[in-house]
Design a protein around this nucleic acid. Sequence first.
DNA 1: CTGAAAGCGCTTACAG
DNA 2: CTGAAAGCGCTTACAG
Lengths: 355, 355
Amino acid sequence: MARRPRTGKATSIDVAREAGVSQSAVSRTFTPGASVAKATKARVMEAANRLGYRPNAIARSLITRRSQIVAMAVSYLDNQFYPELIQGLSNQAQERGYHLLLFTAGEGETADVELMRVLDYQIDGLILASVSLSSAIAERCHQAGIPVVMVNRVSDTPTVSKITGTNAEGGRTVAHFLARGGHTRIAYLAGIEATSTNRDREAGFRLGLAEVGLPLHARAVGNYDAADAAQAVRTLMASAEPPDALFCANDHMALAALDTLRAELGLRVPEDISVVGFDSVGAANWPAYAITSFAQPVGAMISATSETLFAAIDAAIAGEPFEPRHVEIPGALVVRTSARLAPGVTDGGTWTLAN
Amino acid sequence: MARRPRTGKATSIDVAREAGVSQSAVSRTFTPGASVAKATKARVMEAANRLGYRPNAIARSLITRRSQIVAMAVSYLDNQFYPELIQGLSNQAQERGYHLLLFTAGEGETADVELMRVLDYQIDGLILASVSLSSAIAERCHQAGIPVVMVNRVSDTPTVSKITGTNAEGGRTVAHFLARGGHTRIAYLAGIEATSTNRDREAGFRLGLAEVGLPLHARAVGNYDAADAAQAVRTLMASAEPPDALFCANDHMALAALDTLRAELGLRVPEDISVVGFDSVGAANWPAYAITSFAQPVGAMISATSETLFAAIDAAIAGEPFEPRHVEIPGALVVRTSARLAPGVTDGGTWTLAN
DNA sequence: CTGAAAGCGCTTACAG
DNA sequence: CTGAAAGCGCTTACAG
C-alpha cells in the first residue's frame, strides 16, 4: 500500500465530498463538453474554489494518453535566430493549450540519450531546431505516434516533417549578387559541414558561381561558431591573394567575421572586402553591422512549424494518418551596406535573381 | 506473444510476461536502489530491450509525486541575457535528471493564468527569470511545497528565494565612474519602472550622484525595450541642454541608444556623449559597440539559481524545512570604450569604487 | 444528467 | 529476493 503524507492539495474526491456529488461529477465539470447539469456544475465550481482545487494534469495524462506537452530540442542559443524561434513556438504552444519542454542538445550530436528520456514523458510532439535525430529515435517516435518536425535542418528520415528556408536558392542568389557587384575573388565560410543547411547553401552558392563563370576563390570552415569563424577569417585574409568578398553560411559567423575584419585586421567593409550573411537575424540589421543577408523569415518558419506539428497531432488524436511535409519558406536577399553593390542597386530593399 | 493495445508501447506488464517474472520485479529493476537479484535484473533488462520498453514517466510521477520537471518563466528573449540564462539552467536541470518546462510571460505582467496551468503539472520547482508572481500564486506554491526562485528580480514575498546582481551597488559605481570621467550632465535611461532591477539600479545611481555632488541632469524611460529606448534617446538629445553621459539600465537599451546616437543623430561616442550599460551581455563586448557596462556574471547567477532551487527541492523530498535565500552575486564595472575615462584609467579591465 | 466502477501504468508497503 | 495487492488522481464507458 502506497500510503503517503497528504500534500495539502485537494483532489476531485475532496471536492466531491464538499459539493455533495460524485467524483465523476467533479471530473465532468472540468472536462469541456462533458454532460453536467448547470446547477451541479455551479455547486462543484464553488466547492473547487473553496478548496483551491485544480485537476492534476499528470493523472489526466495517464488516462487520456495525451500529455499536452511538446518537446523542443535546441543547441545554438547564442545565435539570435533560435531565441526568436523558441519564443514564437512557445507562444504558439501556449495558445493551443500545450506546454513546451525545452532541452538542449550538444552541437552536432544527435542527443539520443536526452531524447529518450524526454520520450518517457509521453510527449505529444517533438520539435528539433537544427538538431538531428538518429533513425532509431525517429522509428521510435513513429511507432509511438509522436509527430516530429525538424526546423532549419533536413534529414532523409521519411517519417518526420521538415521546415526549412530556401537554402540552395539563397546561396545561389548570393553568388549572383556578389558577381554583379564586381567581385572576382569570392570566398565561402562554411558552417558545420555535416549539416544540411551548410550543404545546401554551399551547393547553391557554388552553382551560382558556376553560372556566372567564377571560381570559388577560397573556402574555410567556421562551424557556425563565432571563435572558429574569426580564426577562419584570419587564415583567409593572410593568404597571398585574399578574397574581395566573403559569403558566411550564417549571420552569427558574419558578425564575427565583420568584427575580425574591421576591429582586428583594420579593413574597411565593404571597400576592402564585402561580407554577406544568411538568416538576417536582428543584429544583422543593427547599423553598426548592416549586414547584407539572405533572410529566413522566422515568423513564417514558426507558423509553418506549429501548423505542421499541430496538424499532425490532431491527426494522431483523430486516428488519421498524416503525411509528413517538407515546407520550404521562401527567403529574399536583404540588401544592406556590408557588400558592394552593382551600379543602380541601392541598399534598403531586397534583391532577387530576377534583377 | 503478448497482445497489447496498439499504442506501440510496451508496459511493465508486457515485460514481466516476456521475462517470466512479476510486474513488481520489472518495476524494481528500473528503480535505482531497489532490491532485485542480479539474475532477475538481467532477465528483465533483456526482455525490456527486446520489447523496447521504457518506464512511463507520467505514471511514475503520479505515484511518486515527483514529476522531475522544473518550470521556468521568461519574457525578454530578445535581450541576450536570457537565452544565456535558459541554456545554463537547462543544462543544470538535465544534469540532475530534471527537465525544463519553459513558458513565456508577457512583459511586466504576472502571468498568473499560465502559471496556474503550469502548476497543474505537479512541477517540482519554479524559476522566474525577471518575471513577478502574484502573492496568491506564491502562497499556492508554498502550500504545495513547490520551491520558487526568482532570478534577476526581487519581490517582498517571503516564501520565495531570490538571486540578483548587486544592482544598487552597480548603479552607484557607475555614477562615481562617470563623475570621475569628468561628466557633469549625467542622464539616466530607466527600464520598466515597476521592476526591482530598475528601482535598485536607479536608487544606487542617484545615491552615487549625490555622493559626488552631482544632480541627475535628465531622465527618460526606455522600458527595457529597444524601440522605447531609441525614442527616449531622441527626446533626451533634443533638449536645450543634452546630457554628456547616459547610464542605461541594461545593455539591451544601451545597444539601441548607441545605434540611435551614432547612426541616427550622427554623434560620436564617447567624444560627444558617454554611454554606460548594465549586464555586460555578449554584444556589449563586440568591438562595434564596446560598451562600458556593469557586469552581472551570468555563470554565477546560473549556479546560484540551480543550487538554491535543487537544495530546496532536496529539502522538500527529505521533508525538511528550507529557508528561502536571497543571494546577491557581486558584479564589476567592465571598462570598455563607450564612456570617457578618468586620467590614468584604461579600458580592458574592471573598475571599482576602491579606485 | 448522474453515480459506481474499471482502469491508465506505475511504486511500494507487506508478507512470505 | 519476490509476488500479490493497494493505491496515485484522474477519465470514461455503462447502466440507471
